[in-house]
């Protein structure tokens, strides 16, 4: 079975997905271009940080503002709701369905990385001053955003697989991210312990120093390696594996009219 083709035929055949994609494809680059431009004009960022600011904005916005989370929770959640998951499990296997969703997460991560790279190009070309951006910047950006988006996508894939309901998954996401932020701050202030390995926080370590999502903390992971990021593959692989075990062990909702 060609997993990529299987996911692609489901995506391409629904008009509302094209409409949603158009909003993101047009809206995201324009939003980042405008935010960067306005911030520069307001003298909030220096010329030397212009591209880094845009890169931070794109990755941060995509991860946390219902861009990638929405594409994962909504699209996979629909399949749990309409019984498609049951049909795939019956006609193929639960392993098949799980792998196809891993492929879907990769496709979403890749798409947004490419869109991000195009956005960087747009910000570069239309910058309000002359700016030289080395090609390596784009290379680093596409890898950095791909890793970040894939990690976020897998995190949200696990949430929707475990909750099996769009509304519950969205509430879980908001509660988790809010609670995690509170716990992180509380423990750091009271006990001076850095809980960098918490799921949402460790994803941030891929593009911001210490996982603190402030523009000034944006950094290039390939030049300024933070060893704490090594926790990420371990925790994501563990989470995905636990999700897979739960998916294969727990019964699906019976199919009936």
């Amino acid at each position: 079975m060609n997993y990529v083709y299987f996911e692609w035929i489901k995506l391409r055949s629904r008009r509302w997905i094209w409409a949603l994609a158009a909003v993101y494809i047009i809206g995201l680059p324009i939003a980042i271009k405008m935010i960067t431009g306005v911030s520069y004009l307001k003298k909030e960022i220096a010329e030397g940080q212009f591209m880094e600011y845009a890169a931070f904005g794109f990755i941060n916005f995509s991860c946390l503002h219902l861009v990638i989370p929405l594409w994962i929770i909504l699209l996979i959640g629909i399949e749990f709701g309409n019984g498609h998951v049951n049909q795939v499990v019956f006609n193929a296997s639960s392993k098949h369905y799980f792998i196809s969703k891993l492929v879907y997460c990769f496709l979403i991560a890749l798409t947004f990385s490419v869109l991000g790279t195009i956005t960087m190009g747009l910000v570069h070309v239309t910058a309000p001053f002359d700016i030289t951006v080395p090609v390596s910047f784009y290379g680093v950006f596409i890898f950095q955003s791909l890793f970040t988006f894939l990690s976020v996508a897998l995190l949200f894939m696990s949430i929707i697989f475990l909750t099996r309901n769009i509304a519950v998954a969205l509430v879980t996401y908001f509660l988790l991210s809010f609670t995690e932020g509170m716990v992180f701050m509380f423990v750091k202030k009271i006990y001076s312990i850095d809980l960098f390995f918490l799921p949402f926080h460790v994803v941030n370590v891929l593009y911001v120093k210490g996982g603190s999502t402030a523009t000034a903390n944006y950094y290039n992971l390939f030049q300024d390696f933070d060893s704490r990021v090594l926790w990420l593959p371990v925790s994501i692989i563990l989470l995905v594996w636990l999700t897979y075990i739960d998916f294969t062990k727990r019964e699906l909702k019976p199919l009936s009219d």
Binding site: K10, S13, R14, R15, W16, I17, I78, N82, G83, H84, N86, Q87, L255, S256, D257
Partner: peptide, 9 residues
């Protein structure tokens, strides 16, 4: 059942 189909397709 009549489930398992995509309404928008």
């Amino acid at each position: 059942s009549r489930k398992g189909f995509f309404e928008g397709m």
